[in-house]
Nucleic acid binder design. Sequence first.
RNA 1: UGCCGAAUGGUGUAACGGUAGCACAGCAGAUUCUGAAUCUGCUUGUCAUGGUUCGAAUCCAUGUUCGGCAACCA
Length: 627
Amino acid sequence: MTTPNRENARAASQPSPGPDATLTTPAQDPAPAPKEPSDFIRDIVASDLESGVHQKIVTRFPPEPNGYLHIGHAKAICLNFGIAREFKGICNFRMDDTNPAKEEIEYVDAITRDVRWLISGWADHCLGLRARGSHPIPRTIGEQTDFHLPSIPADPANPVGTESNAEPFFASAYFEQLFEYAERLIRSGNAFVCDLSLAEMEEYRGIPERPGKESPCRGRSPEENLDLFRRMNQGEFPDGSRTLRARINMASPNIWLRDPVLYRIRAVDHHQTGNRWRVYPMYDFAHCLSDYIEGITHSICTLEFEVHRPLYNWILEHLNLPRPLPHQYEFARLNIEYTVMSKRKLLELVREQIVTGWDDPRMPTLSGLRRRGVRPEAIRNFAHTLGVTKYNGLTDLSLLEHAIRDDLNQFALRRLAVLRPVRVIIDNWEEGQFEQLEAVNNPANPESGTRSVPFGRELFIEQEDFMEVPPPKYFRLRPGGEVRLKYAYIIKCERVVKDTDGRVTEIHCTADLGSRTGGPTASRKVKGTIHWVSAAHCIDARVHLYDRLFRVPEPDADGDFRVHLNPESLSTVVAKCEPSLKDAKPELRYQFERMGYFCLDTTSTAEKPVFNRTISLRDTWSKPAPK
RNA sequence: UGCCGAAUGGUGUAACGGUAGCACAGCAGAUUCUGAAUCUGCUUGUCAUGGUUCGAAUCCAUGUUCGGCAACCA
């Protein structure tokens, strides 16, 4: 039924197909990754390769440009690009832009940015792009014209695809071919123009338990259908007045086979095709054929499309297509606790200004996670631990958090910063005398070196690191107690000064002057070590502390998800930071010791630094009185 | 109550007729100039009932529960 060899001949004649283009079975990786994932989809791909059903795997990631990509999309990206990577194939990046009423060019750009960011340094070489402005190449096979648009070879000079000669695929680039395929369906009596209104259509469709009713237009001749369809596209009929429908089976138990709509009239311009079209194809019609045109072998989507698969196949099978047909496989979408994962709801959060934008660091969007300081590696590792199944569950937030911490811990530069400062005065330290102390940048990675931090008589420490009446097993500073200042001295609290409200304003201490690293009493055991900054040297920085956006694990389980918003999802403090932080770089990550991982926010300036807390450190010390 | 699909510890998953394992979370301990990281140990699971088999998470039957499908959205 399929003719894969035709594909071979064509591909082999392409100019410089790149090093991977030897169309034999994929070469064994000389250094196989420690543990490549395995799942039911990869098993199918592997067996298709082994049996020779396919010589080269082509997957695709086809977002609709009607919103920003989120962590759920990341799962799909990692799956599709991961398969391409592991099996030496290609993953086409395609805009599924068949509904101009909901789609915008802003989203096209944002999605492109996010995909490139996520796969950068990992699957750039598998990114399938089209030659800029290219359209399917018509070719006569047998008695009819076939349409095919292969991806262009990756540019080694610019592995992410050169701006000048490559761009994403667009379903809208196939509108011409899709229209012709629709006409073929009409000519073969498999599609008809229907005059039913929206309400009538709903009534005729019936309910799942009962068969539907056939449209009175179902018997129109191909000639009349063809004429009407063309006039639909010429703007002769108002929006929504007619549709093109597949002629399948109104009694099917599968709703999607009850003469589904293939085309609808929309008198709106499209962000890619302008005013060229007045009819636009529906998802089911456009998607399978876009896959076919691009030569997709494995079309992987989420579970809710499972019931569409018979339609996907029906359309392809009724067009008598000469090349191998793509096949659809479904996996479970990602759900994570304490957030929402639908573009509609995320759009509401943006539109209603509940968040500052799609890239608000509290959003589960890729741009939000990126702005928050999460690296693509962490997201990929997270996706890897998720695996791929057909089970629809709710993933623990801690799985994501662990991936983020695990990634950041390896190379984040350690710094001292006090988020909620209280003043400490070392009474036995001379005023105006300062000292430079050496501090390591990353204990896990000696190559990251050291920097020096200034020490003086007046310091700031964290308010929560001092308690007048501490609970049991509190090993920070207390009246009469000792604590080590990280990289510096052991200090003892002698007395506190309070304001009229009883709040501690100054903690007077004495330092054990021999307890500095290398000093005679340096090895004295003190239970706690806390961070600090020199009051005379520290710089102020605005710091955004983020918490989960919702208070409940499933905010959209029922009713309005807005009632579950966490009013404390963002708090801002002015932190006292060690002076080296004035040279913080946006591409670097920092660990403010004992406080968490931080990065520069996009709004940060040299004069007014702004940090985002990506995530706090794991905290196994259960506080007696949680804030 | 039509059709499609799924059920393995709290969570995400592995085991493909042959010892139910891994990661996260949790708990305990070691270590620690980060209550982090690291290291050690531990708790917790095959939806149910039958059947096939020397042997079942896996195969079969019945049932239960959960998810999806009735846009001119994707």
